[in-house]
Design a protein around this nucleic acid. Structure first.
Lengths: 205, 205
DNA sequence: CATCGGTACGTACCGGCGGTATGTCGTACG
DNA sequence: CGTACGACATACCGCCGGTACGTACCGATG
């Protein structure tokens, strides 16, 4: 449906080089960080020149934001299937979501680009706005559903979500740098479970 | 005691210019961020040249670390008086410590230099090592004392401290950007209190 | 008091990098 | 079939971190 006008071959090429630039950016930003990554390195890896880069993006920051969105979109896709959809009570889905998010945080690209460098490169305010549509928005939704379902005590959604977001990110960062990932993973999950259980309202039905 | 050899006037001057450079760096790194701050701007504000800067510091990173330590030392001084020393039970001191730490996080220099840009500029591993001797080390100590005093459930200290650290930082960042700081401050404190209370062991004595 | 060594800077310069201005080639379109 | 526009490539500029080198001044020493 709606395939009225064919997509031109030229547009395909353009989209392809744009994607190559984003992929290259994600790779290098993840490995070396934003500051230590030169645009020449990005274009070289994508087998184009700076002319192409500045044709598709307004500058280095815009390229970073494109990489940011790419990583977030990929992570959120995997995450949404587990936490938002899927069977079970709000509580069960939340617990599965936490588990899945911690796993997602282990991805180096997500850690470095989204969590660590995102606020610094984009500025906290802009980063926050972007995050509303991605991982943070999801966490916020989960918290809200838990409160509305009377699963946990009534807390201000915004603050609670922000702090849980921070705790999860820190936990995942710790986990990613741990010498014993198996053990650390269990510890993180356990700690989060303990905290959320501590906030849980005892059901008497 | 031990004033055997006088401190030379020359050494005083040297220390003074070093301090001026650090102060200038803290100011500019806080206002414009690390990347957007040129060394020329730092030296200009300190009324010296790059020769002086590179005499005292090995480079821009080393200057940042000096600024980092300066901010952390100042914050920790105020914090230690409240949380470590002072009267009351471990629980009471911990609660006062949390309160004080959230307040400390409101300082723009602490937020930007220590929390946000620290891990990015210094690298997470090195940042973590440095933090062991500063705020994180303090939080870790508080958590440990709470567990040893059987005030809260037994959790792995390292993970718990890391995640509480992340939660507090995120909470404070949210608080710093809130439109209604009074209300936000109360919400943050309340949320933290709820979480810690949820982890508390009911004493029956 | 003259000399001398070293510290604490200042000055001049280099290379790399982000960004820009301009040229060029091919493709779709009238 | 010309032509206009999109999709790049090329050449260049200015800023900034870092380095090499020069210099003035303090302090110890004979």
């Amino acid at each position: 449906m709606s395939v009225v006008t064919l997509r031109s071959r030229r547009a395909d090429y353009s989209e392809s080089t744009r994607q190559a630039l984003v992929d290259s950016a994600v790779e290098l930003f993840t490995k070396r960080g934003y500051a230590a990554t030169s645009l020449d390195a990005v274009t070289k890896r994508a087998r184009v020149t700076k002319g192409a880069l500045y044709h598709h993006f307004s500058g280095k920051q815009a390229l970073f934001e494109a990489a940011f969105s790419a990583v977030e979109t990929a992570v959120l896709k995997r995450l949404g299937e587990v936490a938002v959809a899927g069977p079970g009570s709000p509580w069960d889905r939340a617990m599965r979501g936490v588990e899945a998010y911690v796993q997602a945080c282990l991805e180096p690209a997500y850690q470095r680009i989204v969590i660590h460098e995102g606020p610094v490169v984009m500025g906290w305010e802009r980063w926050r706005e972007a995050e509303d549509h991605f991982s943070y928005g999801l966490i916020r939704t989960v918290i809200q559903s838990l409160i509305e379902a009377k699963e946990i005590v009534e807390l201000p959604v915004e603050v609670t979500a922000r702090m849980l977001f921070g705790a999860l990110s820190s936990g995942a960062t710790f986990l990613a740098n741990a010498t014993d990932p198996k053990k650390a993973s269990a510890e993180v999950s356990n700690a989060i479970t303990q905290v959320l259980t501590g906030l849980r309202i005892k059901k008497d039905d």
